[in-house]
């Protein structure tokens, strides 16, 4: 395989997988003793938030590397149960983002989503998942900087709590 700039650099640098901002276990006093970066699933709508994340990329707006995105056509497609499954399988945080109400590409999908996620958020907290681990918001296709801000703030909040060791979920 061709040698790339990255693979050359990789040969030289230590192969640590610590995400930026994760700190040492000691720094996260009170967090469980598991030293791994927090893993966050982001479920985003194709037309606004996925494109907004693209815009952030085009603008090279740096973000922490903890979020992995799942693309759906509309936030209305997102069954709240996906979020529960994500937590059940071990996600440390879940972020949902779609078009601003009124701008939905399918005109109404996010209006339904808005009601469902409000209820889900309240239930999640009740089930023992702290508020900082779940967020749902709206980012439009042109809001690259907002996407950067949302991701940075959310990851920081989750990192403060550290990797999740839930018992009920």
């Amino acid at each position: 395989m061709a040698e790339t700039a990255a693979s050359k650099a990789r040969g030289a640098a230590p192969t640590s997988v610590a995400a930026p901002g994760s700190g040492t276990p000691a720094a996260r006093a009170g967090a469980p003793q598991v030293d791994r970066p927090v893993k966050i699933i982001g479920i985003v709508c194709n037309w606004c938030s996925y494109a907004g994340a693209d815009t952030a990329g085009v603008g090279r707006f740096k973000q922490p590397a903890n979020v992995r995105l799942l693309r759906v056509p509309c936030t209305g497609r997102i069954d709240p149960l996906f979020v529960l499954k994500a937590f059940e399988k071990g996600a440390d945080g879940v972020l949902i983002s779609g078009c601003h109400p009124g701008d939905c590409h399918y005109s109404e999908g996010n209006y339904y989503a808005r009601r469902k996620f409000e209820l889900l958020e309240r239930m999640l907290h009740y089930l023992g998942i702290p508020k900082e681990r779940f967020k749902w918001t709206w980012v439009s296709a042109s809001e690259g900087q907002r996407w950067q801000q949302v991701v940075t703030d959310f990851v920081a909040g989750v990192e403060k709590l550290g990797p999740r060791e839930g018992r009920a979920l």
Binding site: Y111, R115, K116, F117, E118, L119
Partner: peptide, 28 residues
């Protein structure tokens, strides 16, 4: 708390997750 809605209390109401209002003010 969200809708002041009691399920099944009034026949002419629509279950709240089957509909929406544009003015719903949830989330940021």
């Amino acid at each position: 708390d969200m809708f002041e809605f009691e399920p099944g209390a009034k026949l002419d109401e629509m279950p709240v997750f089957q509909c929406f209002k544009i003015e719903d003010a949830f989330g940021d």
